[in-house]
C-alpha cells in the first residue's frame, strides 16, 4: 500500500478519531494533519506481520494526540485568550456549522459530557468498531479497564442526555 492510498482510505476514520477528541473542527484538522505527518514518517517501518494496519494507525494517532494535548496545554499557559473562550463549542467555522446534520449535532452534544479519554474509547469502540483487546493495546490500558471506562461513559451519556435523545 502506498501512502497516498492510505491517506484516501483512512482519511475519514482518522479525521473522526481527531474530531471525537477535539473541541473544534479547526483543531481536528490540525490534529489530523499531525497524525498523517507521523504516519508518513513512520510509513516505511510498518510491518504487516506484526499488527493490522488499523491498530498501527490508531496507536500512532493515540501518541500524536497525547503530544498534541500536552502542547495545547503548554500553549494555553502563554495564551492571552481566556481559557473559557478557547473552549467554546465548535462555532469557529460558520460554513461548517451550517453543513452539520442533526445527527452530528446530537453526537457533538453527547461528546461534550465526556472526558477526552472517554471520547477516544467511544470513538474506537463505536465508530471504528475495534475490539476491546485492540483498544487496550492502542491506549495502553488493560482490557478490563477499557470495558469499565466504556460502561461508565455510556452510563454518563444516558444520565446526561436521557431527555435530549
Amino acid at each position: 500500500m502506498q501512502f497516498e492510498e492510505l491517506y484516501e482510505t483512512f482519511f475519514v476514520r482518522v479525521y473522526n478519531y481527531a474530531r471525537y477528541r477535539c473541541e473544534t473542527d479547526t483543531e481536528a484538522e490540525d490534529l489530523t494533519a499531525c497524525i498523517f505527518e507521523k504516519l508518513y514518517r513512520k510509513f516505511n517501518s510498518y510491518n504487516a506481520d506484526k499488527s493490522p494496519i488499523e491498530a498501527w494507525i490508531f496507536t500512532i494517532a493515540h501518541s500524536v494526540t497525547v503530544d498534541f494535548s500536552r502542547r495545547k496545554k503548554i500553549r494555553s499557559w502563554f495564551s492571552f485568550t481566556p481559557q473559557q473562550e478557547e473552549n467554546l463549542p465548535m462555532d469557529d467555522n460558520p460554513a461548517r456549522t451550517l453543513e452539520r446534520t442533526s445527527l452530528e449535532e446530537e453526537l457533538q452534544a453527547a461528546l461534550e459530557v465526556l472526558t477526552s479519554q472517554e471520547r477516544e474509547l467511544i470513538n474506537l469502540h463505536y465508530y471504528q468498531r475495534l475490539k476491546q483487546t485492540d483498544i487496550a493495546a492502542i491506549t495502553g490500558l488493560s482490557q478490563s479497564n477499557v470495558g469499565v471506562l466504556l460502561h461508565r461513559a455510556v452510563k454518563k451519556l444516558k444520565f446526561k442526555l436521557g431527555n435530549e435523545l
Binding site: Y7, T101, I122, L157
Partner: peptide, 28 residues
Amino acid sequence: KLNTVLESGFQPSTTTKERVRMVLERKL
C-alpha cells in the same frame, strides 16, 4: 438511538480534506 448517534461520526467536507492535505504537504 444512542448507538446510532455514537456510530454516526462526523462527515468531513471535501474542503476539509483538501485543507488537511495542504497542511500536510506544507509540513512535509
